[in-house]
Amino acid sequence: MPRSTREMIEELLATYDDRLANAFLAAIDDIRNSITLRVIVERLEKGDVQGAIEAMQIDAEAFARLEVAIAEAYNSGGQATVGNLPRLTDPAGNRIQFRFGVRNPEGEAWLRDHSATLVTRIVDDQRTAIRQALTDGLARGENPRRTALDVVGRISRATNRREGGVIGLTAAQERYVASARAELASGDAAALRAYLGRERRDKRFDRTIEKAIRDGKPLPADLITRITGRYSDRLLLLRGEMLARTETMVALSKSRDDAMRQQITAGKFMAEDVTKKWRSAGDSRVRHTHRALNGKAVPMDGVFHSPSGAVLRHPGDPQAPVSEISGCRCWLEYKVDHLAGVVRRNRAA
């Protein structure tokens, strides 16, 4: 008996959310731990910020595993969709076989273009964030070595791998780290309390910060580095989670749409016999525009009109604004009027 669409989507999300997040974080880990700190410091000593960035070797090839994971999610979504279609027979009594072509030229082209665009965006944003951090560090009068370490992270004695830093963060998240560091270094009670309001902070340091507020004493520089590093690590995990959730849903939704269209092209059923209904995750985290779309149904070739003005072919539509797809957990329920297809085939026979 076919699984419910919701069960299928939840199973796929559980698998590929983790797989994509781990692929992204592994890429960042490899970048950080392949860095030769001496080269970066030497270039910063010469005021060569661009040269320091180039020495970190943050390029598209570093994210190859992420591209592979996206392709796996896409292929699995298409296979699961056709595997979940009901069993049907043709007028001669033969079972109709629903298959998803993972080597479909259109699907391969979409995967190639989408992955290339995503990775380019990640790399460009990385370089922007790192340039901001390096420029700010030097402007504060920090020595080149400390500035470099604040960007690439420091080697942990426990893991012998780099932690902290801003590599992997978005440019916006790098600004969060910079402002958090400024709050901790200010020695100002109000600024320290502002840091305690940061959702992603490591709360194990709260008592130490609260004591500094009570005593009216500034935090030691090495402690500020530790606290900021842990805050940065938590933002990196959030970055991985959000990227994975968004890209998993984009890949799954696109592959499910492609899988249905492949069956239409193959003559297994017709587009006019298919309707698609928007289903939200049904909790308080659903964005208000998607709550409004919940339960709306349109033809196979129809689109959904968000209250924001955006037009979506399906949840996670890569052509829609980021505000409509980031972290989206909605899905489509496809309904095929098989009776209409049977009647049509019998008439043709």
Rank of each mutant, 00 (worst) to 15 (best):
S255K: 11
R279T: 05
K277Y: 02
W278P: 00
E247N: 04
Q263T: 04
L238R: 14
Q262G: 11
E241W: 10
M249E: 11
L237K: 12
T246D: 01
Q263A: 08
T265Y: 10
T246F: 02
S253C: 08
L237H: 12
T265M: 11
M249K: 07
E272S: 14
L236C: 01
R245M: 03
A281E: 12
S255H: 04
D258W: 09
S280Q: 04
R256N: 10
A271S: 15
D258I: 09
R245I: 05
A259Y: 10
E272F: 10
A281Y: 03
A271H: 08
L238F: 12
R256Y: 03
L252F: 07
A244V: 01
I264E: 07
G240E: 09
K254P: 00
L237I: 14
V274N: 00
A259Q: 11
F269I: 11
L236N: 04
I264C: 03
R245E: 01
V274C: 07
G267N: 11
K254V: 13
L243K: 09
V274I: 13
T248A: 04
F269C: 05
T246H: 02
S253A: 13
M270S: 15
D258R: 10
T275H: 11
A251N: 01
Q263E: 13
R256V: 11
A281M: 12
S280C: 05
M249W: 04
L237G: 13
M249C: 04
